[in-house]
Design a protein around this nucleic acid. Structure first.
Lengths: 104, 104
DNA sequence: ACAACAGATAAGCACACACTTATGTATTGC
DNA sequence: GCAATACATAAGTGTGTGCTTATCTGTTGT
């Protein structure tokens, strides 16, 4: 199961912060670092974990590697969440917005 | 943030299995155990983690404690997911179904 | 009251994980 | 070619986590 990798990846606050930063737009590893007080190897390791969880994907661009949010990971979480729709509260505004967007 | 507790709770495969079992209906700790090859203290500890993450809630019933899925936790995940709706793939069947449910 | 039962808590242990420093591998510009 | 840059990997270390056994609390039935 890849759920294991996804939830493990998101269990770390630093990785969630990285993911959140990437949600603002694609970025290379160095740009991700500034303002984050994290060593270069640590960043590299975190990005590897996020990639393996399919939350982030990479694209080499010469000497740089650009990282961006991978929709596959989000879809997997959505799929997991959907299994428990019987227990959803009647109204979740955030989700209603989300789902309306998808319905066009 | 409670996202930390939620994702940490779901990062463990045993806890996800417990949660999945609870999704089929409320159950006490002993009933949850059978067929799971897990010690009584381990189950108790896992349930405590799930409760603190608001994924599960408990209700004492005499000598037993019944556990059930807590919608609050699912709502928190949905809220987290909604923040990244810009990156969702165009079609996710599971969520389209969900949308139809909510539109009624 | 007391034994049986349901569950929580305590303490200890083995392993996973996030970090570090050091080094390796590509790619770019001079 | 060669130094500098961007990033990955290796190896070691401290802490967190999930398990265990042992014990404790609280409830039920006799």
């Amino acid at each position: 199961m890849m759920e294991a990798e996804i939830f493990k990846a998101l269990a770390d606050p630093t990785r969630r912060a990285i993911f959140e930063k990437l949600a603002d737009g694609r970025m290379n590893a160095s740009s991700l670092r500034d303002g984050m007080d994290i060593s270069q190897p640590a960043m590299s390791q975190h990005l590897a974990v996020l990639c393996q969880a399919k939350l982030v994907r990479q694209e080499r661009q010469g000497r740089f590697v650009n990282y961006e949010v991978d929709p596959d990971g989000l879809a997997l979480i959505a799929g997991w969440l959907a299994k428990y729709r019987a227990y959803w509260p009647a109204r979740i505004d955030a989700l209603k917005t989300l789902l309306k967007d998808m319905d066009q």
